[in-house]
Design a protein around this nucleic acid. Sequence first.
DNA 1: GTTCTAGAAC
DNA 2: GTTCTAGAAC
Length: 194
Amino acid sequence: MGKRKSEIEGNTPKKIKPHWAMGLMDAMKDPKNIVKSDDLVTVIKDAYPKAEFHYLVIPKEDISNLKALNKDHVELLKHIENIAQEVASLEEHKNKIFKFGYHAEPSMAHLHLHVISDDMNSSCVKTKKHWNSFNTPFFLNPQDVRESLETDGKVSLPTPQQCKDYINTPLHCHKCKYEPKHMPDLKKHILTHL
DNA sequence: GTTCTAGAAC
DNA sequence: GTTCTAGAAC
């Protein structure tokens, strides 16, 4: 293995978050985004929903991402999952199916659990990455995340290469065997499952 | 994360 | 010629 570019150039390998990655902080503070909150978490609507309903459950404790978790956070994760289930069960979501997951490599700082209806029917879904981040193993099951934390004291994550492969997986419908030619094709196709 | 757009794909 | 996607953004 060759040296990484950052090492060759003598840069610090530690990544610095760009300003846009801090967006959840501000979104969390703005009352108009807040769906519900308690001592431990805030639930907001995703600013660019990737389905008809799309929420984020965010702990108030400053946790950057899954890598920052330890066994002391297991109860918090259980709480996050419970709140996610509560939000999904709201009356306005009657007859909707929801799924829950953490992105393996989130773009935004601050731990957040996605609570998203399974229709994927949204004008904000535009790219293969959008699609695959919710419809491949890039979308991590919350129980699996919590159980690996309980067992190992840290969250078991796919490697960066596995993440790339998940995101670059050829497009496929999440409800049937259909393999679309491209995103506009897929976006038309999913309307048949509504 | 989004926006924009060059050039690939058709 | 138009549609679509992938990569830069100071």
